[in-house]
Design a protein around this nucleic acid. Structure first.
Lengths: 144, 144
DNA sequence: ATACCTGCAAAGTCTTTGCCTTAGG
DNA sequence: CCTAAGGCAAAGACTTTGCAGGTAT
């Protein structure tokens, strides 16, 4: 669907009144490189730029990005919220290890899309999107 | 699959060393009556018995029930965790309103089950189960 | 210059842990 | 009786809010 380069996303942000700060760029770069959802803490671990920023700032940035529709907050079982590019979520599903918490993207094709129409009809809900996550024990944890 | 009456579940609990306390019965009764996932707070609101119990007790009860495999904790977008009968989750999916947070069960047939085999092969994960949630704006919220 | 953004401090919500008492089997 | 479960207090993790000063446009 839409473009997913950091630059294109920055443009969208600016069109929506957000300012192109260093932290914003850093977050978008990180999200574009990562297929799997990231928590705020993981973001800080994976980017010096973001590690230097106040946690509160990261929360607020994701809040804005979610408002603009660029990222989606997803509810994995861990305590902390995780964020993914909204775009990625549309085409992709994840496996999450119930022991170590690792989250990996699956590359099978999304066959749920067409279900959304039925769900919309049956439930009367609008603006639907879905979230499909598989939970299990990853190979590494299974060996122990 | 398995039986889902409170009594049957109590038996499973006892086989696993749990004691049949009032709170345990109350939780199982509540879960059996409810198709949708419930948070700890909702449990307390919907049962005088559970409202009287300490919140910590409810956390611990759900922890045990999860350990025994009777309930599953699911990560909706709200801050608080929600719990459903593991059995219900296997056959059922939900719609969740992004505005008011309402969660409703869908009655379409689960077509994901067979995907689990593929996922298992591709990813090497074992003991797979899945969680499919649709998010959107419910009819009531849509009118405002 | 103006509006948005950041950092810092503090409060809020959800969850977990420890210890002692109570009660189920 | 023995051991799991409950209650109470306190700590911990994650998130939100308010305000003053800094920065992008």
């Amino acid at each position: 669907m839409s473009v997913r380069t950091p630059d294109a996303l920055i443009s969208t942000c600016r069109e929506n009144g957000l300012r192109a700060t260093k932290s914003l760029r850093a977050i978008l770069d990180l999200l574009c490189e990562n297929d799997a959802p990231l928590s705020i803490q993981q973001c800080a671990e994976q980017s010096t730029e973001l590690a230097a920023a106040d946690t509160v700032t990261l929360y607020r940035l994701f809040e804005r990005l979610e408002g603009v529709g660029i990222v989606r907050r997803i509810g994995l079982h861990e305590r902390a919220a995780h964020y993914v590019l909204a775009d990625a979520l549309r085409h992709r599903h994840f496996v999450c290890c119930t022991r170590c918490g690792k989250v990996e993207p699956l590359d099978h094709h999304c066959t749920i899309g067409h279900l959304e129409e039925h769900v919309a009809e049956d439930s009367g809900y609008t603006n639907l999107y879905h979230e499909l996550v598989f939970y299990g024990v990853c190979p590494a944890c299974g060996r122990n």
